[in-house]
Design a protein around this nucleic acid. Sequence first.
DNA 1: GACTAGCACTCTCTCGCATCGAGTGCTAAA
DNA 2: TTTAGCACTCGATGCGAGAGAGTGCTAGTC
Lengths: 343, 343
Amino acid sequence: MELQPREIGVLTTLIEDYIQTAAPVGSRTIAKKSNLNLSPASIRNIMADLTEKGYLEQPHTSAGRIPSAQGFRFYVDTLLKYHPLSPEQRNQLTENMGDSRLDVSELLRNASRLLSAYTRQVSMVLAPKASNIGFKHIDFILLKPGLAMSILVVEGGIVRNKIVSVEPELGTDDLVTYSNYLNQLFQGRTLDQVRAKLLQEMDAVQREYQAISQQALVLAQQVFNGGGEREVYVEGTVNFFTHPEFANPAKIQELLRMLEERTCLLELLDKVSKPEGISIIFGREDDQEGLQEFTLISSPYLGQDDPLGVVGVIGPIRMDYAKVVPLVEFTAQVISQLLRNRF
Amino acid sequence: MELQPREIGVLTTLIEDYIQTAAPVGSRTIAKKSNLNLSPASIRNIMADLTEKGYLEQPHTSAGRIPSAQGFRFYVDTLLKYHPLSPEQRNQLTENMGDSRLDVSELLRNASRLLSAYTRQVSMVLAPKASNIGFKHIDFILLKPGLAMSILVVEGGIVRNKIVSVEPELGTDDLVTYSNYLNQLFQGRTLDQVRAKLLQEMDAVQREYQAISQQALVLAQQVFNGGGEREVYVEGTVNFFTHPEFANPAKIQELLRMLEERTCLLELLDKVSKPEGISIIFGREDDQEGLQEFTLISSPYLGQDDPLGVVGVIGPIRMDYAKVVPLVEFTAQVISQLLRNRF
DNA sequence: GACTAGCACTCTCTCGCATCGAGTGCTAAA
DNA sequence: TTTAGCACTCGATGCGAGAGAGTGCTAGTC
């Protein structure tokens, strides 16, 4: 079942032409574009073989061939040569990404926008998962009697706010006392560990009737329960319209719905959130709902060492992988680096 | 140029039918649907008059009529009877909006989602303008030597974070001193006043060489300069596809581009950010780019008394105003109320 | 004088049909 | 093994006839 050099040659030219034109490719075109010096008739024989082996498909008898999912898979896995980014591109991207003083959410949104602009595809960035990041600081600010704003800062400068209700008679000073207590208690733990510690401590305190710590812990509980909803920044949905495969609005609609509902998207992104680097998923292969005819190219970004979130691009299977893949990869790198600067 | 009762009758039935069907309406349909008891022929005469006066348009000679922008304007200004929301709807909407403990940005995004779900249109919420809201609290948290996270809380529990660089030798205690100083200095002012005070104070301090306050002010400056970018939460873009007028993808594309680029959208929303309550803008009238065939229905939401931001819905001119307008209005009310609870 | 029935006319939409052309698959010759 | 040639397939395009919805006008009716 190994492919012969000539078959590989034909497959490569065909895929690359198809990526450019989005139309079925005929034998004549390949005969001209490839440097195999074969006549269309010979090419036709090879194409027939490739079709039989499952690398090509034929929309109808009298049309050219288009690559199958298997064909694309083979292409990206073994044939594809990436265009490395030029130093100017790298610099430009790094600079535009920004001002490292930005809020993390703004930074990620920025990254998503840039990626979408450079690739001319729809891009997405999954925000960090907070559970295994280190706790840094907690703070309470009295908004009005009985109501306070809690501010949780974790490593990397990621901030989460939540309104909490407090005993009406509490003043600013009490809140400072509480936060001091909690900061000391949680120092040096990850958020997961903080949650565990919290439970354990509440148990202990309940037995000992320490009013101050008890109240503080109740506040902390309000902050730490729930949470965990991860933001996804999706940008460039307009780009769906620039691809000829979306002449059919129903397809865009399906995909847009998926992007908006988030749950399905979150699952998908979570799946690729492993430290293995770039990942390319074809909708047709994985049978993901809503991702029928599309490809998701994604790469995780790292905090210290383990993956925090994912950056990716979604587009038609027919995509300029040679260009897009390095862009996704580099964007992930830049994000990692910018975040690392803050630890 | 006043319209006669019969003309109004015809116009109303025609518009309401058009809102349902999205197709040109003929005389026969109106004869049946209106309760005027006139024959199609008479209706035709009236329609001819209405066309002459500019309330109706005729796509081509042998088609029915569709309402012109002027026709719609007249309809929404004088004929439209809103369907008030049922108490159940109100309760449901209020409950789903939330948990008032949410972060403001989450609250607004929620509101946008709900509005889009209820109206089946594309919805948007413009985040509060921070300049004339009261300063509440500022805080600095050391991330690592030389780098701190600043946290600015303003009235209503709106929080803004920004990374600031600090002198490398500063410790946590120094930052506490600074924030105490600044909190005292800015207490009771609006953000605009804070900015003014900041400039004034820097001037004074420079002359007096007070090291502590000088450093604190430099930090504050990092926090307060720039900023001011207002978020817009757009939800439900999928809904564009459910309207027959968008069979033409080019139209959706144009509009999506506007929604994504934000600048144009921000301008537009800023325009309607006055305390006058509900506002209905027809794209055709105002000649807004990208808003050619659409209507923007919007209503500001209030903080204490003055408008903070805007909530709105964008859709085809042919929209179920009777249902959508009250929904937009009520959503704005709920947001106002939820925010007010926090002051 | 207001309303309506009737009729000719207009214009779009939808078919069915023929044609075109890109591309294939097969065969036979180089 | 390669290639030239040829019949064949099938979608795309274009054209014309016919249907259908709707109008505008005229003449007749209450």
